[in-house]
Design a binder for these strands. Structure first.
Length: 582
DNA sequence: CAGTGAGCGAGCTTCCGCTTGACTT
């Protein structure tokens, strides 16, 4: 009998089918060993060496007992935990818990659960990659050191100030800094001039906004109502001509399929779900076999999945909606570990289900199909209008601009899977047509020099607006962009901030509490330049990549970093030396 | 002799990331 070990019990059934008799398949249920939660740092730094005191996780007792029993009966053990840094470490920890049976262990990796991928992986096992394991150990120990050295120094701030960490503290900092920006924000009133114009005898009329005055960009410099009124009165008496009319076509590429962070975004905006609710529903969809694995940072799709999407598009839409060749979406995140596929339906044909998770499923299905549909095509027209041509040093006194976007071909947008940029807060209807992006505005085709009639010229009061507060989902999006946190932790990062009462939520908007503000001010003052910086994780990941490639040993890296942090923590009042004491 | 304060030690808490049920409301 041969034994194959994966992390998730949900995967075992399928794999059993693909491997057939002669194989047992067991699950580790994630990590099986870790640093203990109590008993101090539990990492010893001795003579440049780093010795983490791992212990079996209590909740893993049953899984580990099961693995041991099966391992003792097996002739060969394949550790097929996820193909990323954490998965490699889990494999190493499992082997460590198997005693003499560790000698029978080898490592296998697959990126998709298909018959061919699993069989191929099983046919080509390798040794555990110690460099990858060491990169994970470095990450684990660094996070422990930050948490255990820094948290005690927070007591100066308040008795309730309990925790700091590489991820939670940066998340808190983002919320707190946004709060400060909003408090410091002073709205500035300004005036925009909108002209409604029409070519002599050639409707329809269109609206253009003043963008240049006396050869200078206007921006928000028109603030005096009296000046605005005089300008309007003057402009009304001037001739108006078309300065230029530019029409160009633009491709609108379909969005990539969902990852954990982007599905949380979309579910927040479209379904008003908080990330933890989204994760619960995704878990249910995954366990009922409706979707692929839901904790992922990858937008990659299995070739079979792409073929299935294309078949659905071919069957249900006119032929022009199917691109000649599949659309390959590349992850723009260099940090992505890509252990899994994107989140997608397992059955491309199934466009709706009857379950509490129906709406979320529909969102996933639409995005999946859309991501393989033909790009849309828009005609973007820009008309520059000269008011009082030649009146300012031979140029026009004022330039008014109109922008119009017409959809030539909707492409993937036919599916209603639009709202691609979930970061933009939805504009209220009343503001929508004040906006200047020109969506859906039809502009006539004009020629330079055409004479225009002014129908109306009005001054509109506007004011600048403060940046919006983060929602849970938009904070996660920002963290992901900065490479901070992982798909399995995004929702729990928010839970930590709420549990510590560092952050509170009102009308789905996040604000730092007084305690949160005090904590972040203290951390920035004491640990500026260290883990509290937004780019700290990016720099750490770069160093970990060097470890994973075998170019740098992990122990000096962690030791240097820990000792530096120790000095900062001691300066902040930490007593003793936990690094030496372990 | 009773009350007070300094000093010491023990116990508690804290990180991030990987997985699900087993709990309670």
């Amino acid at each position: 009998m041969r034994l194959l070990v994966v992390e998730s019990p949900t995967k075992t059934k399928k794999i059993r089918e693909y491997l057939g008799p002669g194989w047992r398949v067991a699950a580790s249920f994630g990590h099986v060993r870790d640093l203990p939660i109590s008993g101090g740092l539990s990492v010893r730094f001795v003579d440049g060496r780093v010795e983490p005191g791992y212990v079996p996780l209590e909740r893993s007792a049953q899984a580990v007992a099961d693995l041991r029993r099966q391992a003792s009966l097996a002739s060969e053990i394949l550790l097929a935990t996820d193909p990323d840094r954490e998965g490699e470490a889990i494999a190493w920890h499992i082997a460590a818990l198997l005693g003499d049976d560790a000698a029978k262990c080898r490592r296998a990796v697959f990126h998709a659960i298909t018959a061919s991928a699993v069989q191929k992986a099983v046919a080509a096992p390798r040794a555990i990659d110690q460099h990858l394991v060491d990169a994970q150990q470095a990450r684990r120990v660094l996070d422990r050191v930050v948490g255990w050295l820094v948290s005690p120094t927070l007591r100066v701030v308040s008795r309730e100030a309990r925790s700091a960490g590489r991820v939670q503290s940066v998340a808190l900092r983002l919320v707190a800094e946004r709060e400060r920006e909003i408090s410091a924000f002073v709205a500035k009133d300004f005036i925009v001039l909108d002209a409604t114009l029409e070519r002599e005898g050639a409707p329809p009329p269109f609206t253009a906004r003043l963008i240049r005055w006396k050869g200078e960009p206007l921006e928000q410099r028109l603030t005096d109502p009296a000046v605005a009124e005089k300008t309007v009165a003057w402009c009304r008496r001037q001739p108006w001509l078309v300065e230029s009319c530019d029409r160009r076509e633009q491709n609108r590429l379909p969005p990539p399929p969902f990852t954990t962070a982007t599905v949380q975004q979309a579910a927040s905006v479209r379904l008003k779900l908080a990330p933890d609710q989204t994760m619960r529903q995704l878990q249910a969809l995954f366990e009922s076999g409706r979707i692929t694995y839901h904790r992922t940072d990858s937008v990659a799709l299995a070739p079979e999945a792409i073929a299935a999407a294309r078949a659905v598009i071919a069957a249900r839409f006119p032929v022009k909606y199917l691109p000649a060749s599949p659309i390959i979406h590349a992850s723009r995140d260099a940090n992505a570990q890509e252990a899994h596929e994107a989140i997608r339906p397992t059955d491309a044909e199934l466009d709706a289900i009857d379950a509490p998770e129906a709406a979320l499923y529909r969102l996933i299905w639409e995005r999946f199909i859309a991501c393989q549909m033909a790009p849309g095509r828009d005609a973007v027209t820009t008309i520059d209008v000269a008011c009082a041509p030649g009146a300012f040093n031979g140029q026009a006194m004022g330039i008014f601009q109109a922008k119009g976007v017409m959809v030539l071909f909707d492409g993937w947008r036919k599916l209603g899977a639009d709202a691609t940029d979930e970061s933009k807060p939805k504009r209220k209807k009343s503001e929508k047509h004040e906006d200047h992006d020109g969506t859906g505005v039809k502009l006539p085709l004009l020629n330079p020099g055409d004479t225009l009639n002014l129908i109306e010229l009005s001054a509109v009061e506007r004011s600048t607006r403060p940046p919006p507060r983060f929602t849970q989902a938009s904070l996660i999006k920002r963290l992901e962009r900065e490479g901070i946190g992982r798909p399995s932790t995004y929702a729990t990062i928010l839970k930590t901030l709420f549990d510590r009462t560092y952050v509170e939520e009102r009308k789905r908007m996040l604000a730092a509490t007084t305690l949160g503000m005090q904590v972040i001010d203290y951390l920035v003052a004491r640990y500026g330049g260290n883990f509290i910086e937004i780019d700290f994780t990016r720099r750490m990941e770069a160093a970990l990549d060097a470890v994973a490639r075998g170019e740098q040993p992990w122990e000096p890296l962690v030791t240097r970093s820990a000792q530096h942090l120790l000095r900062l923590a001691q300066a902040a009042g930490l007593r003793g030396d936990p690094l030496a004491e372990g």
